[in-house]
Amino acid sequence: MTPVLQTFKLSKWYGNILGLSEVSLEVRPGVTGLLGPNGAGKSTLMKLLTGQLKPSLGRVRVSGQSVWNNPGLFRKIGYCPEHDSFYEDTTGRQFLWGLMRLHGFTAAESARRTEAALALVDLVEDKDRLIRGYSRGMRQRLKVAQALGHDPDILILDEPLSGLDPLGKRKIIGLIKNFRAGNKTVLVSSHVLPEVEALTRDIVLIHQGKILAAGDIHGIRDLIDAHPHVVALKCDRPRDLAARLVREPYVLKVQVGAEGLLTLETGNRDVFFGRLPSLIVELDLEVEEISSPDDNLQAVFDYLVGR
């Protein structure tokens, strides 16, 4: 398959700050996940791929064409930016309708596409509310809708699942999976591994402006799984749970903190999460919260870079 998105030794500096360094990448039809911690260069790469920024060095090609100052390409590109910004004094419907009009559709066609896009992201009921009154999740869905409204062949989504509740995430994941049918291309970025895993097997790891690895998620997952994974858990009797956990072979370190907080490090994340429910039932615990600290992926990347 011919690559749809291509970069050749692409570099970008913001003054003295390196945003992207000699990135050569080929993205083919289907869903590709761009995974990296915050500040890795994901948004820079996406802005370069959508002609928002000019490369400092190297080339960007979309469907074989240069993207900078090539507005015709945007008939087939849908772009969902990362930042949470809108024309706040418009309603969701006015916003989408206006953007569809800018695509050159007639008023009637724009209205039809607007309704269809709103329905796709479950915003029909709120379409006539001002955007400034939308929740974070609604705003995120509206951003996805504006990228989908003109039925593009290529979808570039920068952190589209950020700020969504689990139901919203499921909805958007479903949308993206449906979209890839028909030989379409999706490039989606995230700093959360399970989000990317839910979308695709093809991932690109980016860190400090460089591509670390690209390919099937399972190989990369193995690398990541080999790295100790930190889990924080809040329950009514953390010491009892800690005493039980230290006997488990996959638990490397346990620490009991204040207010029922227990932090542990596991060498096998999947086994730990598979075993945890039975431990909770066995000890009759009341669990308030389970989380993986956000910087975990950063630690994984640091680990990968250091290997």
Binding site: K47, T50, Q52, P71, F74, P81, S85, Y87, L99, L102
Partner: peptide, 15 residues
């Protein structure tokens, strides 16, 4: 400043 330029630049419109 409002970071809405990306919506406009992602349309098939000459700058």
């Amino acid at each position: 400043e409002g970071r809405t330029l990306s919506y406009l630049l992602a349309r098939p419109l000459p700058r």
